[in-house]
Amino acid sequence: MARFAVESWSPEYGSPVGEEGQPDLVPAAAVDPSIELPAAEWQPIDCASADIATDVLFVDGVRRIDARLWFDIDGRSRGGIAASYAAGVIRCRDEATIEQEAVGRGIFAMTGAATIDCGKVRYEHHPTATEDMEQLQRGIQSEMGRMEKDLAAKAGPAELLFLDGPLRGGESIPGAVGYIKSHQAGYLPDEAAGVVGQLRPGQRTPLFLIQQSWSRYSWYVRLPIDLPGHPWAGIARCEVAARGTAREAAAVANRASVTLQRFASTPHKDTRAPQNLFPIAGLENHLRHRLGDREFLYRQLRMAALAGEG
């Protein structure tokens, strides 16, 4: 086993050396708002006529850094992280059942680090290019994404499949609708952005095309909300891969928008209501629980480090 030490600072503080992890920001992108309606004619689209899907899958994953580690690689101390991650698929038909779930634990560090076996648990080494925190985070994200994709494939067909979070190009689950509840990038030109504020629950914006390294159709939808707050309250963004025609994408958008209404959470039960959907919150709770007790894992890692010393 490679020699390693566990950072004594609790993982949520980051590390006294090195950078904080950066959120996965989408760079400003070329956006074409005139896919469904010309940008100047943008107006809310009512989806009520679309069929509500009765067999829906939600795919989500959770991750957690269990410890920050220092590996002794070629005489140099290199940072790495030990992370637990889990993914699951929930099917909402008559009952909401967790159909697939899996837990993984990994060491994300540069080549030269190694798998750590703590006896009860085992952290598999996934080599990263650098010891940069962003790289390490991306490593976890990509392992988790792979897990999500595998599980979604096992789950079998459904009328709609929502993936919590943005799609990731070719790595994504085929046919998935990406569901994004927080808005870090403004995609729309100002004249179109005003329509978002006009949306009533169950309505969506026209589609717009985002072209980055890969293309996807996206739209904003308003979820049920009791008290109208600021213009963006209860707004979620969805996206689908731009593989088919805009007309096909619009049909999916209508159906997804009307179906989502049913799963929206209520403020007294969820601080991120209504966007944090009930099934996803339930799945996340379940998966977080499956990650295991962090204190316990942290202790296991430290014990393994001490054993490696000796």
Binding site: E95, A96, H286
Partner: peptide
Amino acid sequence: DSDVFLISEGVLPA
């Protein structure tokens, strides 16, 4: 307590 309705409607897993 009201989660029971969400669960029986198939919205919340339990």
